[in-house]
Design a protein around this nucleic acid. Structure first.
Lengths: 339, 339
DNA sequence: CGAAAGTGTGGAACCGTTTCCACAGCAGGC
DNA sequence: GCCTGCTGTGGAAACGGTTCCACACTTTCG
């Protein structure tokens, strides 16, 4: 492997000049720069990022902590982050946060601390106070996506408002027997999102004076299979069946639609279903949904990180950036049929 | 940030001894080791991986190159790789290979070369000879998943055999008008997989003496939407409609099932559908499929990498490891109804 | 016309580790 | 009692860059 000194020798300049010529910092005449660059090209020189970041203290690498990879929302966020980072010339080191407590501790105390990353993006993760302290002690930018951060900069949709909005959509269509199928605190690591959506649902129901007891909510795995299973159970009895369902995510909503079809229930004439997320499959299933744009959120998180990385104006305000949403009305919602 | 020298000072030993105590290489008495370890703990010392790998030449970091993140197969592979790497104490740097030619070149010539990774795992990527040469010149382990590697160690199912197997399943049920909906060379970056599945389909059809002309294949995006759209078109005319469909992937198969339902075609009584992959949703849709286990394949790829990393017995045999599959028969396939 | 400012270059220190080498003590074998 | 081999430790030389500082040569400007 060729080193900078080889390039310098070939170009007949000092290491210092060679470094300046290649990195673009400091004065180098056009002539020598060309000589150095072509020398580097001929011997196939590439900087050692280790050596480089050892002295500069910057790694051009961002750590991403994410609970799942293979769920639409998370995959989409990850793709957005990846594209934006590559475009900015950064690498992305991926850490999946498992449910296992000791592995989680190991990740934080060991992996993230090894001066390997310049910044951290945490996706849908509720950090413990200890973890926040640990991360802040690194004095590196941290940005959270999904779920308001506890003292860290964050970016997400307003989940309470989102759930209230979709619930109100059903209410305004005339539905009164509305049920919510969504994630629960027990079932989800990234629970903040789903408890908040549940809160939004309740808020809208109560504001409309509609019943919102324990049978108005059913916990589900936040996945198509979870929605499918929960909906099968919830819709089994025609007498207690709601006329509309607010799903905690589009995946749950799609599972619900598939379950309804299997039970012979017509959507939307017998059952309206509304989701939250703007899943790529929502169009295919004709699902009315409140679209957020996880891919763009990933990119925006990277922008926030880059801002902090470039400027670092003392304390980076740990503000919460609300991401806009848009209601996409399709064929899964309509007014309830007269009874 | 505390450095090794701080630990050494606190423990009243030399840097050399401190290093040995913490890394576990070389002789250190039990007594001093304890002193060093507790000194490190009190000041919260963590090694600088940059400094460390600068001198050792190893980074404990593996690069993963993958074309998509948000498709089931790829997400699953990625999760498998991630878990296995973390367990082995390695970091994972993620590179998504886009279709864009210049970005692809940039990735290879710039990102992957910066001595940042100890090994590379390439998922479903057909490398150009130039790229293979580039990677091999790094003298680092490379393992491919999906698609036989051109001179690099690889791991995948036998896609030709897999497609032939599912096709034969339909043939043995008595189907004769069988159609294949799958990925095409034009539409897919990771095309080797899908051209091979197509080849397997043709092979089985021809072996059975069944017609296999141009109308026996329809190209689709390898996704649910793609399968949905292609199936809607393919099934529109009842007169030319096949009695069974071999889908290029489970996602295509599910899209096909949804399309059939929308067209009022009963599955399986009027149309059998079979997929390949063992998608997590296949059970929910009652899909008969040939299951592979991408998660386990990811783990296996990591094992291969670790083997090479630990031993490096000269030239690491660029062998192809065939991954086993299993047919999971569900409710989407049956004998054709008599006409 | 002399001082100040801007440009171009090289020497050398430094980043934080690992590891080679030297050295010292101590056991065992002849 | 001396040589050999093992254990334990410290000094110092890498690893491959970046950057501070010093120095030299041009301009510019009052």
């Amino acid at each position: 492997m060729s080193a900078l000194s080889d390039v310098a020798r070939l170009a007949q300049v000092s290491k210092a000049t060679a470094s300046r010529a290649l990195s673009g910092n400091g004065y180098v005449s056009e002539l020598t720069r060309n000589r150095v660059v072509s020398a580097a090209a001929t011997i196939g020189y590439v900087v050692s990022s280790n050596a480089s970041s050892l002295v500069t203290g910057r790694t051009r690498n961002v750590g991403v902590v994410i609970p799942h990879i293979n769920r639409w929302y998370f995959g989409e966020v990850l793709e957005g982050i990846e594209s934006a980072l590559i475009a900015a010339g950064y690498d992305l080191t991926l850490y999946r946060l498992s449910e296992d407590e000791t592995e989680r501790r190991r990740l934080f105390e060991y992996f993230l601390m090894r001066k390997r990353v310049d910044a951290v993006i945490a996706v849908s993760i509720e950090l413990t106070p200890h973890e926040v302290r640990l991360l802040r002690s690194l004095d590196k930018p941290i940005v959270g996506i999904g779920g308001p951060g506890d003292g860290i900069a964050a970016l997400s949709i307003d989940d309470v408002a989102a759930a209230a909005l979709v619930t109100n959509h059903l209410i305004s269509l005339g539905h009164t027997r509305i049920m919510h199928i969504g994630g629960s605190r027990q079932k989800e690591m990234d629970f903040r999102v789903h408890t908040q959506r549940q809160a939004g649902f309740r808020k809208a129901m109560e504001a409309a004076g509609l019943p919102c007891g324990t049978d108005a909510f059913r916990a589900a795995d936040v996945s198509m299979q979870g929605g499918f299973a929960a909906a099968l159970a919830a819709l089994a009895d025609p007498r207690s069946r709601p006329t509309a369902i607010v799903a905690g995510s589009d995946e749950v909503a799609i599972g619900t639609i598939v379950a309804a079809r299997q039970l012979g229930i017509q959507v939307p004439s017998q059952l309206s279903v509304i989701g939250i997320d703007g899943h790529e499959l929502s169009a295919m299933f004709g699902l009315t949904t409140l679209a957020q744009h996880p891919n763009a959120q990933g990119k925006m998180a990277v922008d926030l990180v880059m801002d902090e990385l470039l400027q670092r104006p003392g304390a980076p305000a740990p503000t919460w950036h609300a991401y806009p949403v848009s209601l996409e009305v399709r064929d899964s919602t309509t007014a309830p049929s007269v009874e």
